[in-house]
Each structure stands twice: as structure tokens, then as C-alpha cells.
């Protein structure tokens, strides 16, 4: 998956292109903002159960209407939308329908865990995937390379929740070696707490790595294998530069460009959390927060989590676009010309 960058011819052209891009992203953001507002409200049912709590069925209809009105839900949609935008402009994400907890606080609570869980696994996945991909790429078509390819594909093919269930069964229940749920256990301090967090990470991160390694592996393997016979590499070989240096300098760097794009895409999805794995391992991340908000029709939390997702994807996307020419010597020279 490569990001196409249109050829840029002059400085003013560059400025115009950047402005155009920015305008484009702004437009996408505006539409996304509207969707984050409308989508929760389009879902069947409503937030009454969450608003009214356990007693909702026992409440007088008039009281129930009052509960909804307290959150402005009796207002027409345009008014609600205006309030949403107004609050957002003040960086106020609103309060959860579930107990009135500030949504920003809920996200701030969940975000570090998501970053830890998904961040660790994306980096590990990238590192392992790229390393194996390089090996397989260099040995493409040979026995070992094919064996590696088959192995990685097999691993990668397993659905995360299924691997997670098996992992709990073996490592948790049978071996009793690792905790089966949560991010921490109570009562640890200092170094012990760090160790505690780390042991809780092992299974979910392991599952995410296994489930995600294929993408990086394949992208790397493919581009390394392609670069192996690219003119500049063969030229370098012909000049008598040692193989090792050719691989390091002339082969790997350009070959890793698509990996960079892939990494950006994965990082964009990062804040979306890893719903399935968070659910299986009861890990308190953003994916779970979003899922619970959807189930409870908690509009403010849904809006905020969707928005976080949209913004991160867009930002990472823009970053990928912007950094790609910087990393690719070919597009760089073209831009300067």
C-alpha cells in the first residue's frame, strides 16, 4: 500500500498543494464530525436505559422525559448538533450518560492502556515482521524462505479471539503461568507494579502480534525481493561493494518505505483499540470503552471515541503523506527540482 504523491513542480505549487491537502482534510473532518454526531442517534433504541439506570422501567413517563431533557435530548437535532459543536470548540467532550462522568476523563483513563497494549504490539509486530520479512525476501524462492513464509502465513491466519481463547486455556488455566484478565492486580507498588503490568501484557500483546505480523512480513518480503534485482542494487553489486553493505544501504532503506506506510496505517488504527483482544482479556482500553458506549447508547462517549478514532486516522494519514517524500530520495529530488 503506497501513498501516491502527485508530482510537485514549484514552490508556489507546493504551497498550493499543501493548502489543498489541508482543505481536503478539513472537509473530511467536517463530514466525519457530522457522522460522529448522527450515527449514535441513528441507532435503534436510545440512551434511556443508560440514563435511567436500573430503575428506568419503574419511572413515571413524565419523570423519564425529564431525565432525557436534563441531557438536552428533548431538543431538536440541529440544536443538539449546535451544542455539540459549541462544546467541542471549548474542548468539552461532555459527560457520559452513564453517571455523568466527564468523557474526557474516561478517555484519558483508557488511552494509556490502549497505547501501552496496541503500541507495544504494533512496534513488536513491525520489528518482528520486518526482520522476518527481510530474511524471507532475501531468501525468496529458496527452501528456508518458503518455510518461513508458510509459517508466518499460518500464524497470521488465526483469528485473534480464537488465539486469545486458546492462549487463556493453555497459559492461564493449564500452566497457570500468566494472568488471564485485566491490566493490573491490586496491591502492587514500585517495581512489582511494573512487573505486574508487564505480565498482564504478555498474553494480549502476544495474541495481537501473532494476528498482525502477516502484513508487515508480506510487505517487507515483497519489497526486499523486488529491490534485490533493482538496477541500483545490481549496479552496486557490480561496483564490487560488499554484499552486506549493499543490503544495508542500497536495499533495505528503499525497501522499507512501504513498511513505513504500513506502520502509519496501523498506528492510525491504534487508538481504535483492539476491541476483540480487549474483550477477551478484559483489558481496559478504548476499544472496550467504545463498545460499551455503543451498547449503552451513550451518545457523548460514542461521539468522543469516534472522534478520537477519526482524528487519529486522519492525522496519521496526513503524516504518512507528508513524511513519505522526505524518506523517499526519488520523490525528494523531484520535489526540489
Amino acid at each position: 500500500m503506497s501513498v501516491a504523491s502527485s508530482p510537485v513542480r514549484s514552490r508556489t505549487g507546493l504551497v498550493r498543494a499543501v493548502l489543498g491537502r489541508a482543505g481536503g482534510y478539513l472537509a473530511v473532518f467536517a463530514v466525519a464530525l457530522t457522522i460522529t454526531f448522527l450515527l449514535p442517534r441513528a441507532l435503534p433504541g436510545g440512551p434511556l436505559r443508560t440514563l435511567g439506570g436500573a430503575d428506568v422501567a419503574d419511572l413515571d413517563p413524565a419523570v423519564r422525559a425529564q431525565v432525557a431533557a436534563a441531557y438536552g435530548l428533548d431538543q431538536p437535532l440541529p440544536v443538539q448538533f449546535w451544542r455539540y459543536l459549541r462544546d467541542l470548540a471549548r474542548l468539552d467532550l461532555g459527560e457520559s450518560f452513564n453517571g455523568g462522568r466527564p468523557v474526557a476523563e474516561a478517555i484519558a483513563d483508557a488511552l494509556p492502556w490502549t497505547l501501552l497494549l496496541v503500541g507495544t504490539s504494533v512496534l513488536l509486530t513491525a520489528a518482528i515482521g520486518v526482520a522476518l520479512g527481510v530474511i524471507a525476501g532475501l531468501r525468496r524462492g529458496r527452501g528456508k524462505g518458503n518455510l518461513l513464509l508458510a509459517g508466518v502465513l499460518l500464524l497470521d491466519a488465526a483469528p485473534a479471539f480464537w488465539v486469545g481463547m486458546l492462549a487463556i486455556l493453555f497459559f492461564g488455566v493449564h500452566l497457570g503461568a500468566l494472568p488471564t484478565f485485566g491490566a493490573t492486580t491490586v496491591g502492587h507498588t514500585g517495581l512489582a507494579a511494573v512487573g505486574d503490568v508487564a505480565t498482564h501484557l504478555v498474553l494480549p500483546v502476544g495474541v495481537l502480534v501473532v494476528a498482525g505480523i502477516g502484513q508487515f512480513f508480506l510487505v517487507t518480503r515483497f519489497s526486499v525481493a523486488s529491490a534485490l534485482h533493482a538496477p541500483h542494487v545490481e549496479h552496486a553489486h557490480a561496483r564490487g561493494i560488499p554484499h552486506r553493505r549493499v543490503v544495508a544501504r542500497h536495499l533495505l532503506r528503499p525497501a522499507l518505505l512501504p513498511v513505513h506506510t504500513q506502520l502509519m496505517i496501523e498506528l492510525g488504527w491504534l487508538v481504535g483499540g483492539a476491541l476483540v483482544v480487549e474483550t477477551v482479556f478484559a483489558y481496559p482500553g478504548l476499544g472496550r470503552l467504545t463498545f460499551d458506549a455503543i451498547q449503552g447508547r451513550d451518545y457523548p462517549t460514542m461521539q468522543a471515541t469516534f472522534l478520537t478514532l477519526v482524528v487519529t486516522v486522519l492525522v496519521m494519514n496526513a503524516l504518512a503523506d507528508l513524511t513519505y517524500p522526505l524518506l523517499d530520495p526519488r520523490t525528494r529530488t523531484r520535489g526540489a527540482a
Partner: peptide, 16 residues
């Protein structure tokens, strides 16, 4: 809070 029942029962077996 353990959303997945299967995980909760596994944790009961492990003693967590």
C-alpha cells in the same frame, strides 16, 4: 470487571 464470561470462569479456575 471481566466482560467475557469465559474469561471470568477461567480466572476462577486459576484462582485469580
Amino acid at each position: 470487571v471481566v466482560p467475557e464470561q469465559q474469561t471470568a470462569l477461567a480466572a476462577l479456575r486459576t484462582g485469580e
